[in-house]
Structures are given as C-alpha cells and as structure tokens.
Amino acid sequence: MLEINNLHASVVDIENSEILKGINLKVNKGEVHAIMGPNGSGKSTLANVLMGRPDYEVTAGSVVFYGESILGLRAEERAHRGMFLAFQYPAEIPGVRPWQFLKAALDSKAESRGEDKMSVRAFSKLFDEKVEAVGINPTLVKRSLNEGFSGGEKKRNEMLQLEVLQPSLAILDETDSGLDVDALRIVAEGVNSMRSPERSFIVVTHYQRLLNYITPDVVHILVKGKIVRTGGPDLALEVEKDGYKEYLAAAGANA
C-alpha cells in the first residue's frame, strides 16, 4: 500500500536542514506499524512529509501510495486517495465548527472521486455516533475547532475526524500523548475497531503503553532521520526498558 524509498527531506528555505536522511519503509494492506524514537528524531517530520506539508522539501527518494507516486500531490489530493494524519499538535481554528468542516472534507472527497455527497441527515447521524464513540463532549464540537480545547480534547477530536473520514492509511502522531487512561482506551478501541484487511496504520508513539492495546505488526526505531532498527512488538518492550542510548551512540558514530 505504502512504499517509502530512501526519503530525504529538509525544511524549505533553510540550508543544511536535512531532517529525514534516507527513510525506507513498506506498509502492506491491513498492517499496523509503530514508529518510536527519541525527541527530535524526525517522526513528526516523516508524518508531515507523507501528508504533504509545504514546510518541508523532499530532496531525494520516493513515496508510492497504491502504486502511484504522491510526492507531487497537494495535501487534499493525498487525503482524497485515503491518507489521514492525526496531528501531534492540532491547529486551533476559531469560528470553524468540526461539523461544518468535516462535512466539507467528506463532500470534497466524494466530489474528487465522482461519488455522491452524503446527505446532511446521514452525515449528522454519522457525526453524532462518532462524537459519542470518541467520548467528546457534544457542546465542545459545537464550538470552534480546537480553540480552547484541552490537550486531551484535541486528541479526541483528531480521533473523531479519523473515524468520520475512514481513511485507508491513518498516521497517528502521538495521539496517545496527554491522554488520560479512559481516552487512551478510546483511541486504542477506535484503532482496533477500524483495523481491517484494507486499512493500515502508522502509529507514532513514545509509550509501550499504547501498544499494549494496539498490537502492532511491525515496530520501527527512528533515530536522527533514519530507521535504525525494525522488529516485532517485542522491540517496543525493549525500548521501554533500555531507552535509545545504544542507538544514539551508534547514530552519533555514523554521523
């Protein structure tokens, strides 16, 4: 489904700002991949580059999604093809209500695929169901998008969007950070209920805790812009116990 080859990326307009230094990653249909790594190693950058954030420039390598190179596509075009990013730091958007904006997002996706738009009634029903499922206070979603939301509320709101939009590849960037135990379970249940042979996940996390609920198929360790180790679910336990010292030392030696 997703194939990343030798991906290098820098910050636009900043010289010598390379963050991703040759990422290789293959995600098959139905798989859940976890990416772990120390602060500043490039996990969010990878997630954002995959989604097409214009702040980054890809200087080498390729990203192929469903057999098509997506590096030339705008973020909305990637979304229409089934990609979704739950942000580590969701933007606050005053005056924009989640309901309106998600309806616009779905309509735009339907339009791009030549499908019929969902009726307001059907959408409202779906929306209300998902609001309940992710445990967001319904009055909150009547307000502005993320404005004045607590950290945990923002993350739940990301889950709400994920569940409404039903992407085929969902990238979750630390959606588990800042969540209370109940919310963590909601995120995990959300992901587990959406797991299907047709849908894949890339879950960026610092905590083994989340992986107790969501059992990943593959775990990657990203250090200084490179994937330095790939393994099974046990790798997360190892990191939890030993930290990244060994990898950092090795990466430092290579640099």
Partner: peptide, 21 residues
Amino acid sequence: FYLQSRGVSEDAAKAILVRGF
C-alpha cells in the same frame, strides 16, 4: 494545511478560514 490534510480543497479551506474569522 490542517484543513487541506482532511481533504478540503485549498480554495474551500481559505473560505472556511475567512468565514471562521
């Protein structure tokens, strides 16, 4: 970018943001 990443076209996203203001 936040709105576009959800699939809203650039023009529609701009309109939504101005309207939000």
